[in-house]
Design a protein around this nucleic acid. Structure first.
Lengths: 195, 195
DNA sequence: TTTGATACTGAACAAATGTTCAGATAACCT
DNA sequence: AGGTTATCTGAACATTTGTTCAGTATCAAA
């Protein structure tokens, strides 16, 4: 046996990434073997190396793609000029975007330590770029007198941590609708920044 | 060779837990081998099994001890009756306690998935007990008219996520003192709950 | 000084790990 | 129809994994 009927790299490539993301998120990077990923895709382990040079590169690809999609998705929501409206947009965007990609978010927070120094620095840089997007809003809002904040850097990190926390408990079809959750968090963030 | 001179179970036991915690936090549970832990302690791998039935039990022990210490440390700070003072106490306690045990906190959030269902339920129960401590404060405060909150459960989770986030960036000797950090976070939490 | 328990070594086990590669098959192109 | 290339198999590799255990050296008590 060798090549399967209907096999295509345009199909197998994405499927490998999808199954890897699912398994890494579920069991952790180190706990998942290349053979498990291959089995989930329906292929032998050796075939994975047609699509990735090694296991770490597979993880790095997932993290990098996710961070880039996050940044470009944010760039597309057309940031408002008015600080208060911009902050509300950010809060709702962050919750909504992260909930639709729970696995990738989980990986981005948990598996950074499995990256080599070079790869780590790349992801760290992308994350910082995203944080800067929020901090720009807070700085502008403080300058305009819309927000009262002792420290914009800490407020940035505090808000992001708070919003990302939604991922740990939110389940579709739960007690609260997504829109209600967004509204409640926006209410808390708004008050926290003194707006 | 066999037994080392001056070896005692009262020393080796705690050292195994300490080195395991350090290594698990640094590289992840699955990525650390029993031989690495043994080498860090200065002992052969087989000796570990005098102190733990298996690898998972070692992790479970660390997580359970940490959660129990967290709960008993909180019980000792003599919770205030006045909601606003109680909340400030909680905020400062959580930041301070977690920062002194960064490795254990890290483990408690990242390695839960390496536990079997039974062990998982135990840790989850302890965590929920801790969350309930905060929610009790928020409920009492809302009843007393001190806090304005749309949802105490969400506020609980949001506040804890925000406070725990300090662990990801705080480094001793950094830009801000611990007391300043506590004050800034208390300021944000206080405003967020409408007090 | 003998006895018994405690704390550890060192070797062994089967199973699983990431990765490589020669060969085989199917799809595509001419 | 035939040749080429892309895609995948299946076996192999050296290493490492968690765990067990018979043996050994040290300590405490008698």
């Amino acid at each position: 046996m060798a090549r399967k009927t209907g096999s295509h790299s345009e199909i197998t490539g994405p499927r490998i990434r999808a199954e890897a993301q699912r398994l890494f998120a579920r069991h952790g990077f180190a706990a998942v073997s290349m053979r498990q990923i291959a089995a989930a895709v329906g292929v032998q382990a050796g075939a994975l190396y047609l699509y990735t040079p090694d296991k770490e590169a597979l993880l790095f690809d997932l993290l990098k793609s996710h961070m880039e999609e996050l940044l470009s998705a944010w760039a597309e929501v057309a940031p408002q000029a008015e600080p208060r409206a911009a902050l509300e947009t950010f809060v709702r965007f962050h919750i909504r975007f992260n909930l639709t990609r729970a696995e990738a978010v989980f990986l981005s927070y948990m598996e950074l330590r499995n990256l080599g120094p070079g790869n780590f620095a790349v992801i760290e840089g992308l994350r910082r770029a995203y944080e800067t997007e929020l901090e720009k809003i807070l700085i502008a809002g403080r300058a305009a007198g819309a927000f009262a904040l002792p420290d914009t850097k800490l407020a940035t990190l505090a808000i992001i941590a708070m919003l990302t926390g939604v991922n740990t408990w939110y389940r579709e079809g739960g007690r609260l609708s997504l829109d209600t959750v967004e509204a409640i968090y926006w209410d808390m963030v708004r008050k926290a920044v003194g707006a």
